[in-house]
Design a binder for these strands. Sequence first.
DNA 1: AATTATAATGCATTTGTTTGCAACTGCAAT
DNA 2: ATTGCAGTTGCAAACAAATGCATTATAATT
Lengths: 128, 128
Amino acid sequence: MRTSSVDQIILEVLAQEHAHLTSLQIFEVIRERLPAVNQSTVYRALERMAKRGQVSVSDMGTGSAVYELVADGRHHHLVCQVCGCILTIDHEEVGRFFTEIEAQNQFKIATNHLILFGVCGECGKNGG
Amino acid sequence: MRTSSVDQIILEVLAQEHAHLTSLQIFEVIRERLPAVNQSTVYRALERMAKRGQVSVSDMGTGSAVYELVADGRHHHLVCQVCGCILTIDHEEVGRFFTEIEAQNQFKIATNHLILFGVCGECGKNGG
DNA sequence: AATTATAATGCATTTGTTTGCAACTGCAAT
DNA sequence: ATTGCAGTTGCAAACAAATGCATTATAATT
Ligand SMILES: [Zn+2]
Ligand SMILES: [Zn+2]
Ligand SMILES: [Zn+2]
Ligand SMILES: [Zn+2]
């Protein structure tokens, strides 16, 4: 497999930042090392890496997709549509559900960073 | 609550077509009855209706979001990233998982049309 | 080393979606 | 009827993301 310098830098950035980063945020960091790099190159690199399962791509309701390294440990999130807070749930219970669905449908799930929207406990108390 | 003519037509269209429709497809149908309607009006109407829980909005990997009436019965999908086929799973088993997650996290899930990506049985056999 | 094949990139363009703002509409209180 | 208010709309512009095409870089083959 051919190694792209952009891919390599993205992996380093994501490994270092350890957060949900937008394509633009990643682009800005890469530019420091490769000033001539184009934004669509970053989009395409991220797309490649998502297809390989190296990074997750998710819409967390912020207007632009966020990317995160998968290697560190599979996890998922609950996003409150009222206050925007983000709860993290580990893969264990989700994995049981996925396995059940996979068995019942002869289907191998690739989704590696599930986002469920709703209302958190705090907001549920206040807003009814 | 104030009634918008566009909202009403969208409900009728979705109830009749009974499918995953893009904003553009909905727009084209509405134009037959309201020729001067603007596309952003349709986007805003769909956004309103999604917030009310009347319709679901989902990225099914086709390049544009698809909308569907929720009223008819809550369901979810598995989308094959190889052949594009769509399996439907009813809410029962998903609901059990949601309830578990809700209890463990004091969180009320609003997601009403879950999309899980992966590889279907047929493609799994062929492509390894 | 030279050749070929394949994958990655830059640039410009296009597509899909959201937003700011001013104008308009429907409803309720006066 | 008049006024006031909140929700809705059109329009243009901003924004996020994807794509077509020509060029360049890399790896494999000769
Ligand atoms: Zn995460
Ligand atoms: Zn909240
Ligand atoms: Zn559906
Ligand atoms: Zn398939």
